[in-house]
Simulated scan of single mutants.
Amino acid sequence: MQIDDPAVLAEVRAVFDRYEAALMANEVAVLDAIFWADPRTVRFGIGEILYGIEAIRAFRASVRAYAQRIQRQVRITAFGQDVAATHLEYERIGTGLIGRETKIMARIPQQGWRVVSAHVSLLAAEDPGRVMGMKA
């Protein structure tokens, strides 16, 4: 298995960037399309635990707007041709709050890259967190 094939990394980065743009614009149809339309899809958010695409879609439909954010660091690792993990460290604009987001993506036959699992967390305001292992 090849780790970090440049072509795969570019494909995954394009999906990652498309998702981020859609999130900041609250383009629900795009956000939904990037997630795997399957009951096994999981999204753990800052204040929600969602099992299955229907729960994820219902949550997205309830959101009026997402907190705007600045990307501080993005890490993507591809495992072979069909699985990748993305990691984002971000700062919520105007709050100083630091968030973290991990997505597991898989290349689904006839669909392309889809998020199959996501986990979002936010550090408490009084906890600036520790960033270790900054070497890429």
Rank of each mutant, 00 (worst) to 15 (best):
M1K: 06
I3D: 11
P6C: 05
A7E: 11
V8I: 15
V8T: 13
L9C: 09
E11L: 14
E11R: 12
R13Q: 15
R13S: 10
A14C: 11
V15P: 03
V15S: 09
F16W: 08
D17H: 04
Y19H: 09
Y19G: 00
A21N: 08
A21V: 06
A21T: 14
A22Q: 10
L23C: 05
L23G: 01
M24I: 04
M24W: 00
A25R: 14
A25E: 13
N26G: 06
E27Y: 05
V28Q: 02
V28W: 04
V28I: 15
V30N: 01
D32P: 02
I34C: 02
I34E: 01
I34K: 07
F35G: 01
A37L: 01
D38P: 03
D38K: 13
D38H: 11
P39I: 02
P39Y: 10
P39M: 10
R40A: 14
R40H: 01
R40K: 11
R43C: 07
R43M: 10
F44A: 00
G47D: 09
L50G: 00
L50I: 09
L50N: 07
Y51V: 06
Y51E: 05
G52N: 04
G52F: 12
G52C: 06
E54D: 15
I56M: 10
I56V: 15
R57I: 01
R57Q: 10
F59E: 03
F59D: 06
A61K: 08
A61Y: 02
A61F: 02
A65G: 01
A65Q: 11
A65N: 04
Y66T: 06
A67V: 09
I70A: 11
I70W: 05
Q71T: 14
Q71G: 14
R72V: 10
Q73E: 08
Q73D: 14
V74E: 04
R75V: 11
I76A: 03
I76W: 00
I76R: 03
A78T: 08
F79E: 04
V83H: 09
V83W: 06
T86R: 05
T86W: 02
L88Q: 12
E89D: 08
Y90W: 02
Y90H: 05
E91P: 00
R92W: 07
I93G: 00
G94F: 09
T95M: 05
T95A: 03
G96P: 01
L97Y: 08
L97W: 07
I98L: 14
I98T: 11
I98M: 04
G99I: 05
R100E: 03
R100F: 10
E101M: 09
T102I: 12
T102A: 07
T102C: 12
A106K: 14
R107I: 08
R107L: 08
I108L: 13
I108E: 11
I108C: 13
Q111R: 15
W113C: 01
W113Q: 01
R114E: 03
V116K: 06
V116Q: 06
A118H: 02
A118T: 04
V120Y: 11
S121R: 12
S121W: 09
L122C: 03
L123V: 03
A124L: 12
A125R: 13
E126W: 08
D127Y: 15
G129C: 03
G129S: 08
V131C: 14
V131N: 14
V131L: 15
M132V: 15
M132C: 06
M134I: 06
K135G: 07
K135S: 13
A136M: 12
A136E: 13
